[in-house]
Design a protein around this nucleic acid. Structure first.
Length: 884
RNA sequence: GGGUUUAUAGCUCAGUUGGUUAGAGCGCCACGUUGACAUCGUGGAGGUCGGCAGUUCGAAUCUGCCUAAACCCACCA
């Protein structure tokens, strides 16, 4: 229940188990991908943070100085959009507010909603070092971002320029290329006739955005296109606006597409812009920042661009200039945040040069200094890095780190870069040579920086916000950096991961992390991405309340193979909760077997005479080994499945069963119970990273612990050198035989409690002792009346029989046996084995196989053949007996 | 248009360097409740490993082609 989970969380927190300070242990550092400050926990966060917590908790138990730094991101555009929306509901327009007024609203919104998500992470059990909580817009980190801008400016990486940028008309800001989502949509391709001046002729162009005709300044054809050769150099009349424009030629135009004539709108298309530059064309910006048609266009002024499109098509049609309309599929860019259609727009923005920054970042991923898990993501990383373009870092927003540029002239040309207005003023005086410059004559750039321009510093500045300025790491940064694992979704590889790597090498001359684990996207059962707008995402907090944090964590991890998407299914959480119950019940059972007033100390010693003990320890040891491998490959779900099965199938279904007292009502003998508790403790450790709450609860209940002995800081179980393989295989054999007997019980419809006279006939005398000494196991798990082990036994009349790897099992069933049924049962098994044998014989009779295959493989087949033949013989004898 | 990846039981996935008449969980079927757990136990039925060809003594595994799907990148109107 969540109340106990809360109790243990506070217990951990109050004892400072999640807090880390540098010491002489090896550090294991993880920085959280900071969620949006005003966000609420969604399923993606759940998965992301569950994975991180598993890694961190395990590292902590393995003796590392584990440090998981939490925090939030100011999320410039997302948060600003939310605040704008909220204000709009209150009847306030952003444009009515001053910058400071708006920021006051934004801060109070942040104060109100910020940090909710961090509280939610606690419910999940995230073992973050909360004393280290950071916020990208807090003073220290704010300053570090400004330092970063200045540093890069000084290095010549940052410049200001007029470029074609992705314009989001809803948020009214420029966006980086990464923030544009291209979606394939059905569009219309409009064929429009442009009259050629001084003739009756027309030239027909094709466009998907007819409204941009208003800003056309040329028509372009391919110079090799014979159809239009004679038109080059002539003048067209742009429809609607009746502006004259030249017909030019350029290789860029594909004669095959559309009509082979391209209208050129330099202000609203990247390619057109380049052609415009080349041919020295006029640039007409026909759009206002909000996507409405600007004054300069002369027509449809003030109407939205899509409204204008409809109108212009209608008008063209009326004027007889619209030739035809084709349906085509093309890609349209949408804003990642607002989902508005992006308009390419020429504007003055700040950019960061990427060529130098990307070099080491590419190299160190390709040579595995930084390992990607799964490694396939290296490919797309390389592709992106090799084709990287300059980063538009300015945003026409208020919520964020304000660009530290101050203008002192009349225009935008003259500016200084400075940390403060004061410093800017001094610099400006010098730069301008104008000593009468007043403080009010300088004004700071209105724009803020892209959110990712702050988060790319996250692994550095959470430890040392002054580092970028000082270039001297403080003791924290020196100890914790580089961090170990970065856990994130592939979606933000370019937004964030790639840029952190660039920043790491650029500023710290060192990678920011050694391993990146990319997990999948959380989808619903129909493979749709979980999102608020689709309403297909469960509320994580409700899940936690319903299934417990432990159950929910298990549910998240169960179906989450590395690098593949997770098809979330609430049933998996239910399965997780059921597992919690199973564990709880197992513990309760052991507790019930304690004698009143007696104290029990879990024992780590196993009984060397007890085959079950040795088997259980062997299973634990091999599971530890396998989990080790799974963790090093970041296959957390595999590791979880293994410990899950160890607890449920091995410990609960077999070990506890054989521990049970002989008589109902009797308690398990003290020694046995203490050994069971000893195993239970080990299992709780192995499970703790996945299910921290219930394991801690049981750990504390198994014996009284001091605070220093909390499970969460206890050492990971040690690997033993002892070899248990023989015991494991003997016990396995016993298990198989018991299963075979249960199968007889079921198929013969025996009452489960009906007493059995078991006769076991091993292949050879040598196995008699092993089985004999395990006879107590059979007695625990089956209703055994008599138990005979005899290598020379013969099958009693009217008995059911089975053969398990050569060992025969007889169960006399005088009067109970249904002979037809038994015959049928045996025949079924014979058929199976005969098919099996046929396959082996086919192989062995193939000379090529015998001569070419490795000897051991051939030997194995021969042994299989012999075993199968002997089993088959025994079964056939049994069958024959019935026929007599 | 380039690139990456996937295709194995009704569903979600394992299957290490080719040598298992292919495994797990869920779901399904049958049986089972006198004290750990029906949030459970026991047993069982489900697959010619997308298709076709090839390499090999031997292919779910390697190669080629085909089909289907997913994702990423890109300025074709």
């Amino acid at each position: 229940p969540s109340s106990t989970e809360e109790k243990w969380y506070s217990y951990w927190e109050e004892n400072g188990y999640f807090h880390s300070e540098p010491d002489d242990r090896e550090s294991y550092t993880v920085v959280i991908p900071p969620p949006n400050v005003t966000g609420v926990l969604h399923m993606g966060h759940m998965l992301n943070n569950t994975i991180q917590d598993v890694l961190v908790r395990r590292a902590r138990m393995k003796g590392y100085n584990a440090c998981w730094v939490p925090g939030t991101d100011h999320a410039s555009i997302a948060t600003e959009a939310k605040v704008v929306q909220k204000l709009r509901k209150e009847g306030i327009k952003k444009s009515d507010l001053t910058r400071d007024e708006f920021l006051d609203h934004a801060w109070s919104w942040t104060d109100e909603h910020g940090g909710i998500i961090l509280q939610q992470l606690k419910k999940l059990g995230a073992s973050c070092d909360w004393k280290r909580t950071r916020f990208t817009l807090e003073d220290e980190l704010y300053n570090s971002v400004i330092d970063c801008f200045i540093e890069l400016y000084d290095r010549g990486y940052i410049y200001r320029g007029q470029r074609m940028v992705n314009w989001d008309p809803a948020a009214q800001t420029a966006l980086s290329d990464e923030e544009v989502i291209h979606k394939e949509v059905q569009s219309r391709l409009y064929h429009v006739k442009y009259p050629i001046k001084g003739t009756d002729e027309f030239i027909t162009i094709a466009t998907t955005r007819p409204e941009t005709i208003l800003a056309d300044t040329a028509v372009c054809v391919n110079p090799k296109d014979e159809r239009y050769k004679n038109l080059v150099g002539k003048t067209v009349i742009i429809p609607v606006v009746n502006r004259e424009a030249p017909i030019i030629s350029d290789d860029y135009v594909d004669p095959e597409f559309g009509t082979g004539c391209l209208k050129i709108t330099p202000a609203h298309d990247q390619n057109d812009y380049e052609i415009g530059m080349k041919h020295d064309l006029e640039v007409i910006d026909m759009l206002n920042p909000d996507g409405t048609v600007a004054e300069i266009a002369g027509h449809y002024v003030g109407s939205d661009r899509f409204e204008a499109r409809k109108q212009i098509v209608k008008d063209l049609d009326e004027q007889g200039l619209l030739v035809k309309v084709d349906e085509i599929a093309n890609k349209v860019g949408y804003s990642e945040r607002t989902d508005a259609v992006i308009e390419p727009r020429l504007s003055l923005q700040w950019f960061c040069r990427m060529d130098e920054l990307s070099k080491p970042a590419l190299e160190h991923v390709m040579n595995d200094d930084i390992r990607f898990h799964p490694a396939k993501f290296k490919n797309s990383y390389r592709h992106w890095m090799e084709n990287i373009r300059d980063w538009c870092i300015s945003r026409q927003l208020w919520w964020g780190h304000r660009i530290p540029a101050w203008y002192y002239g009349n225009g935008d040309e003259e500016y200084v870069i400075a940390r403060s207005a004061e410093e800017a003023f001094e610099k400006a005086k010098i730069e301008s040579g104008n000593h009468s410059l007043a403080k009010t004559d300088i004004r700071q750039d209105e724009d803020v920086l892209d959110t990712w321009f702050s988060s790319w510093l996250w692994p550095i500045t959470v430890f040392d916000p002054d580092f970028i300025r000082s270039a001297e790491p403080n003791s924290e940064l020196a100890y914790y950096y580089p961090t170990r694992d970065l856990v994130t979704a592939p979606e933000i590889m370019f937004f964030w991961v790639a840029r952190m790597i660039m920043a790491g090498y650029a500023f710290a001359d060192e990678k920011p992390f050694s391993d990146v684990y990319y997990h999948g996207i959380v989808r619903d059962e129909k493979r749709r991405k979980m999102s608020k707008s689709l309403g297909n995402s469960p509320d994580p907090i409700e899940l936690i309340e319903k299934y417990g944090a432990d159950g929910t964590r298990v549910g998240m991890l169960f179906s989450s193979p590395a690098g593949n998407d997770l098809l979330f299914d609430e049933n998996l959480c239910e399965q997780g909760r059921n597992f919690s119950n199973k564990i709880w019940n197992a513990f309760r059972f052991l507790t019930m077997n304690m004698d009143e007033g007696e104290s029990y100390t879990p024992s780590s010693e196993i009984d060397p005479e007890n085959i079950a003990d040795k088997w259980m320890m062997g299973r634990i040891q091999s599971t530890l080994k396998e989990m080790e491998k799974d963790f090093s490959n970041y296959r957390l779900n595999e590791a979880l499945k293994k410990i899950y099965s160890l607890v449920w199938d091995d410990f609960c279904d077999w070990y506890i069963e054989v521990c049970k007292a002989d008589q109902y009502g009797e308690n398990i003998p003290k020694e046995k119970l203490e050994r069971a508790l000893g195993f239970f403790e080990i299992l709780m450790k192995m499970l703790h990273p996945f299910m921290p709450f219930i394991t801690e609860e049981i750990w504390q209940r198994i014996r009284d612990r001091s605070a220093e002995e909390a499970l969460t800081i206890s050492p990971w179980p040690e690997q033993s050198d002892e070899d248990f393989t023989e015991s494991v295989s003997i016990f396995r054999m016993v298990q198989e035989q018991i299963s075979a007997i249960r199968n007889i019980q079921a198929e013969m419809n025996l009452a489960p409690k009906a007493d059995l006279d078991l006769i076991i006939k091993p292949k050879s005398e040598s196995a008699v002792d092993a089985i004999e000494s395990a006879s107590w196991v059979y007695r625990k798990l089956l209703p055994v009346k008599s138990f005979t082990v005899d290598a020379t036994a013969s099958k009693p009349q009217a008995s059911a029989a089975s053969v398990v790897s050569g060992t025969e099992i007889y169960i006399p069933l005088e009067g109970l046996i249904d002979l037809d049924k038994e015959r049928e049962r045996i025949q079924k098994e014979i058929d199976r084995l005969q098919g099996f044998l046929k396959g082996i014989e086919k192989k062995l009779s193939n000379e090529q196989f015998v001569s070419n295959a490795p000897e051991e493989v051939v030997d194995k087949e021969r042994r299989k053949k012999a075993d199968t033949e002997s089993s088959l013989q025994k079964l056939q004898d049994q069958l024959e007996e019935f026929s007599r």
